[in-house]
Each structure stands twice: as C-alpha cells, then as structure tokens.
Design a protein around this nucleic acid. Structure first.
Lengths: 338, 338
DNA sequence: TTGTACGCGTTATCAC
DNA sequence: GTGATAACGCGTACAA
C-alpha cells in the first residue's frame, strides 16, 4: 500500500480511502490511485486488516462426520450462502470423536473465526466450556447441546420417528427393532423418544431387547442388527436412526440370508438420492437439507451483522416420511424362526 | 501478552520466549510467567502472529462438488491429516461452476492461505492465471490443468476405463453407450480416451452416436441416457464416467421401463459403500480415496515445510474394477428394439 | 480533501 | 538471561 501511495504520489490514507470508499476522494486522485493499484498489482492484506479490524470474515464449521451425505449436503449449502456473503468457511470434521472435536474447536477459535456453526459429536462438558468461553456467535445444527442456549436449527426428530414408527405399526408390525444413534447426542435421544412415544400410543410395551446402539456408524449398526436378527424372537421390522446405519442393517440382512422386505421390513432416518432407483426402494424420513443449511447460514449472518434479536432463535423443521417399498404388511412376512 | 508481562513483571520479549521456547529462560521467570498466563487466561493471537510471520498455517481446499461422495471422502482424509499437522483447512466448493471457482480461489488467496489443494471444475484460463500469479504451494487432485505444472495426485483414468470397457466387451457387448463427464476436465478427457482405446484394441469403430456428455451431474446424465436408450439402435450396455451420473442412468432405465442388467448392462466410475447391498449390485471402478487424500495432504505438507524437491511430483494411482452384477453377457440380453 | 502518526499483538534483533 | 524496540500492513483519529 505504501508502494501504491508512492507511485501515485499520495499518502496511504488516501489510498485506503479509495479502496474502502470510506472517505470522499477527488476524481483525479482516485483514478491515479486506481491506476497505480493496477500497475503494482496491489492486493490488500487481509491479515493486517483482520488485526486492525478484529474480524476475519471467516466462520468455523464443525460437523461430526462429513462423510455422512446429510452433513455433506448441509455443508455445501452453508458454504455457498456464506461465500456469497463474502465469508470464508473453515471446515473441521472429527469423525464423531469427542476429543478430536475439542481440539478442532480450539483450532477454529485460535484462528479467530467470527462465528461458529456446529453439529456436535457429543454432549461433552469440555466442548461446552470452550464454546461458552469463546463468546462467539454460534449456531448449532442438527444436534443440540444441553445447557447451551444459542441460535439453532434442528429437526423435529421426535415427531418424525414417531410418525415413521406409527406407519410400521399400522402395517401390523409388533416387534420393531430400533438401531439407535449415540445417546450422547440430542438426535440420538429424541429419535429414540419418538419410537417410544409411538409404542406407547399403540399401547405396546417398550422392550429393551429390541433397541440396540449403533452410534450412527455402519459398522456398529451391523453388529447391532446382527444381535437383533439372531435373537430368539426376531423382529419383523427394523428402524435405523440414520443413513449410514441403514447400510449396516442391510448388510446384516444380506449376510444372514434374509430378504428385505420379504423377511424383514426396514425404514430409516435420512433420505438418499438413489433411494428410489436401487432395490429395495428404501422407506425413509427425508430431511430438508437445503432449508437447514440456508437457515443456519442466515442465522449466523444475522448474528454477525448484529441484526439478530438478543434472545437465541431456535428453528425446528419437519421431516417427511417417504413411503417406498422396504416395509410391507406383517401378514406378508413369514413368522420369525425361533 | 502485554498484560501477562506486566502481571509477571517481565518484558513481552520474555513472555514470547516462554511461549515459543525460542530462547532460554530461567526457571523462576518461566514459572512466574506460566502462572500469569493461567490467571489472565491469555491466548496468543494467531492473526498478529500471522502478520509477523507471514504464515497462517491454513490451506485452502477447493473441490468442484463436495456433494460427490468421492470428493467428500477425499476432503475428509485431507482435513484429518492436515489437522494433525496443525493446519486448518478452508473449504470451497463451486458446484462445478467455473466462474464461482475463480471467485473462490481469489477468496482463498486473499485470506493468505499457505497452500492450495484443488480439484478444478474446468480448465479455465483465468483460474490458471490466478494460480500461477499466486505463486503458492499447490497440489492438484483428481483433475489436472493443462500447462500448470505442480504437485498432483491423480488416477490412471485412461487405464481404468480401458479395462472396464474391455470387461464389457469381453461379455460380448458391441454397442456400449458412454456417458461422459465434462471434456473441460482432464478426467473427462482421459476416461473417454480409455473407452476409445479399448474399442480400438477390440478393432471396433468409435461411434459418436454412442457417447453423450453428462457433465458429471445426475440430471445431465439422465437426459443423455434417455437419448441413448431411445435411439434407433439401443446400446446393450452403458458406462457412466462417474458416480453421480450413474444414478441418472439408472433412473432413465427405470423410467423407460427397462431393467438392469436384464435389458441393459451398466458399469460406472467410482464405487459406493452400498454397492453390494442394494440391487442391482453395481459393477464399478473403485478409487483409492484414502490414499489420494493422504498423498495430497502429504504433498502439500512437504512443500510447506520446504522438504520437497524443486521439481513437481506427480503421483498416479490405479483404480480397481469391482465386478458385481450389473453387467451380464450380451447373449442373455434381449435384442434392442428398433 | 489530504497527510501524519499511532496502534492492533506478535516476534526477531540487538543491546545489556 | 533479559529487556527495549522495530517491524509486519492496515485503518483511522486528528491535524493541516
């Protein structure tokens, strides 16, 4: 900038005024400066600017698992919206690992991001302390944190699973296996609560034997399903609490020599783009990923520009049950082999 | 830092020495300073540090489409490796949009990233000028840029498609439709070249009618396949040049009332985690995503630490043909309807 | 309207 | 072994 000032025979203050339009500058000087900028190929240094202004125009985005298509879609939308608003996004994913998560959030804060968008891996005390301590605009997505009261956009998980379970119940299923996500997450807890609520509404008992923890991962779900399907009284249907796990569920069914939906009905949280192309066409709960991403980005943008109300805003969106062909009436399902 | 210095009754220089271990400090002063740091809750400002040191310990990662599971996996690995090395990653995805891409790369450079990892959307002159002008450590992944001679890790696309085509040829298929990616990308061109080479090896003519451009997107591939499948002499097999497009291919087949592999065989570039769980089990070319991500991260890390050789390193990995059930011998395929 | 000078928080260089 | 001080590049009072 000094070079530009010299070349144009003006002071740095004037150059700065031209670049930022922060003060009126006479046309002749303006054009002389603009030319000098071209010639020198000057580019303003964002680091120095950040140091002075105390803002980086960067937001940290941390999700538990970017390999999960749900998060991928949300991240893509967020990045897009934020980019259009002139913000860069720093991405971290921790593979659902709570310790890694703490490290990463520190890294983000250390880099002086202006705000944080987080889909936390677990309800971790350290994480919560760090977030509270950072005192940054924060929006939680997908998963809430107990005791952290910030902007957030989440799904009505309870209701979505409640409805899906009711649907399976309506098909006559009485023993519905449930592969749960980690109960350390709000989604894990809320989805399970929806399952329980539906059972209760149908005046059916809740059986511990029918629910297994799959931690939102394919591998764990595989094992969990294996236990369910090889138990003495095999369930006639299985609900998977997310997309990754349903693949594990299907693998188990295949490995055990069963067929879906002939032998066991399956439904799952999270939709797939290919769900109605490959067999069996999976019945799923579709999340409004586009809306989730857009809302989250907008929430942080509003906070950043100071035009949010003081009170945190909590957006709750609804899922949509996509009924396809992976669930069939229990009357068409052969009785479980003891 | 000034506060810490005051509290501990030392100079800022000494505090800095303690924090960075850049100079020997007497034990008593050291402990006094460390205590002050604790009490004040001091954290070193990375922005100021960057300004002084000229390094941000951040690398920019730009991929054409993070929604594509292939890129997602690679991004996840890169982020992981880089994080462990103390680097943050700034992510940009441009939805295969060349103009957006230019904007984003500018944004990244503007933020003073230390290095760049790029899977370019297209072979764009502006992009190349920007990259060359930035003079930053750069590694290209997946897709090469004509005339840009940097570190890179790519697949042997030509050979992979060549082998896959040969496989289909070996099944007796003579009219193999080819849904191509954008020819603006090196992967688009190389994969098509592999197809042509296989045809030539089999002494079969290359027919323009059989190849359609799908631009790596599901929608375009849908239309392209529709043209192929409704033409007077329908191909008995189709190869899709990536994962997103094969979904479009399958949708067309379904919508037209055909069956895979009964009526038309299908194979595709890029593997899916669920490929052997849902029907038809897709025959694909699996890319070593883990290795690609690790190598790319390592290349940039080496460059950043200055221990790379001056000459750019170009890593070429091999794909693996996963033969499953979506291709069958042409003798079992009913003759195309005129 | 324009220029000067200072401060943002670090680190490196040099005296002591 | 420790302290003073000059950069890093920018924005902005304040003075002219």
């Amino acid at each position: 900038m000094l070079d530009v000032a010299k070349a144009a025979n003006v002071s740095v203050a004037t150059v700065s005024a031209v670049i930022n339009g922060s003060a009126p500058v006479s046309p002749e000087l303006r054009s002389r400066i603009e030319e000098a900028i071209q010639v020198i190929g000057y580019k303003r240094n964002a680091i120095a600017r950040s140091l002075k202004l105390g803002t980086t125009r960067t937001v940290g985005l941390m999700v538990a698992d970017i390999t999960n298509p749900f998060f991928t879609d949300v991240v893509a939308v967020i990045q897009d919206v934020l980019h259009r608003a002139g913000y860069a996004v720093m991405l971290c994913c921790n593979d659902e690992d709570v310790e890694m998560q703490d490290e990463q959030i520190e890294l983000l804060i250390d880099r002086s991001v202006d705000g944080l968008i987080i889909a936390p891996a677990g309800d971790d005390e350290t994480l919560k302390r760090i977030i509270a301590g950072a005192n940054l605009p924060t929006v939680l997505i997908d998963r809430l944190l107990d005791g952290i009261d910030t902007d957030a956009v989440v799904l009505d998980n309870r209701r979505a699973v409640h409805d899906a379970t009711l649907y399976m119940l309506g098909l006559g299923h009485r023993r519905i296996g449930y592969i749960s996500g980690s109960l350390e997450t709000s989604t894990g807890r809320e989805r399970l609560a929806g399952y329980k609520a539906a059972l209760e509404a149908a005046k059916l008992p809740y059986e511990d034997d029918l629910v297994r923890i799959g931690n939102f991962r394919e591998k764990d779900a595989y094992k969990a399903t294996m236990q369910l399907l090889t138990s003495t009284e095999r369930p006639s249907a299985i609900f998977s609490a997310n997309n990754l796990m349903v693949i594990g569920v299907m693998k188990t069914i295949r490995d055990i020599g069963l067929k879906c939906p002939e032998d066991v009905s399956v439904a799952s949280f999270d939709d797939f783009p290919w769900a109605d192309v490959f067999q069996p066409h999976l019945t799923t709960i579709a999340q409004p990923v586009q809306a989730i991403g857009e809302q989250a980005a907008q929430l942080i943008l509003d906070r950043l520009s100071g035009k949010s109300p003081a009170a945190p805003r909590r957006l709750v969106l609804q899922g949509r049950l996509m009924i396809r062909e992976s669930c069939r009436p229990v009357s068409l399902t052969p009785r479980a082999i003891a």
